[in-house]
Design a protein around this nucleic acid. Structure first.
Lengths: 107, 107
DNA sequence: TCATCATATATCGATGATCTTTATATGGGT
DNA sequence: ACCCATATAAAGATCATCGATATATGATGA
């Protein structure tokens, strides 16, 4: 699972959100470092729904525009937890080795 | 940076290694979970050398077969440290939210 | 008022990067 | 005769990026 996908799932843990809500949330989560493109997001929505990790929650009409909300499924939460664990393990392995080698820009 | 690339760099922190050495090392680092394909590896070697994150170290001939060793550059180590930090941050954000929501398969 | 511009929202298609799959080549060990 | 270690290459898949389009409302300004 790549970074944008991971962050989209993370955003949805906090409750159902629509496209643009996810975009701003991800920007916050990543401290402004990850700015999702609309194309990336909506393609990911389709794919994740296909995989059963998210589902459409509801639609609202606000100022004449549709807002489509998606929410995380149980499978989605389980999957996200597994991915987080995997990332933590890999990050730990890398840092341990960098420390052992006295390298690694921890200036 | 995707997972295979990250793990290849991690493997090289421990010192210069050749293709098949990296494959076994990555298998160890990831506790058997990530098994690099030859195609993935050699393509990544080319790309990472292009980017200046690794360099060719030396060649050996063992039993008539070439072994080409690569090693991490300083840029490579810095980059790996940054990626590890980024992953840790994202993993932490996801876990915090999952915990707050009482979800997340931490059975 | 009317035209224009910006904003929020969603959609689509082309392109690009990275990984997977599969096949090929070679020399030594069993 | 076959398997293993090692490297290379090409086709295909997946996912992300980039850039464009569409629509309705709100804001700006002549």
């Amino acid at each position: 699972m790549q970074e944008p996908t991971f962050l989209i799932l993370t955003a949805l843990v906090a409750g159902p959100q629509h496209g643009y809500g996810v975009i701003s949330d991800v920007e916050q989560i990543s401290a402004g470092r990850v700015r999702l493109r609309a194309g990336t997001l909506y393609a990911a929505f389709d794919r994740l729904q296909e995989e059963g990790l998210i589902v459409e929650d509801r639609e609202e009409i606000v100022d004449g525009r549709v807002r489509r909300y998606y929410k995380l499924t149980d499978d989605g939460a389980t999957r996200l937890a597994a991915e987080a664990e995997r990332m933590r393990r890999h990050a730990r392995a890398a840092s341990a080795r960098l420390r052992a080698a006295g390298l690694g820009g921890m200036a």
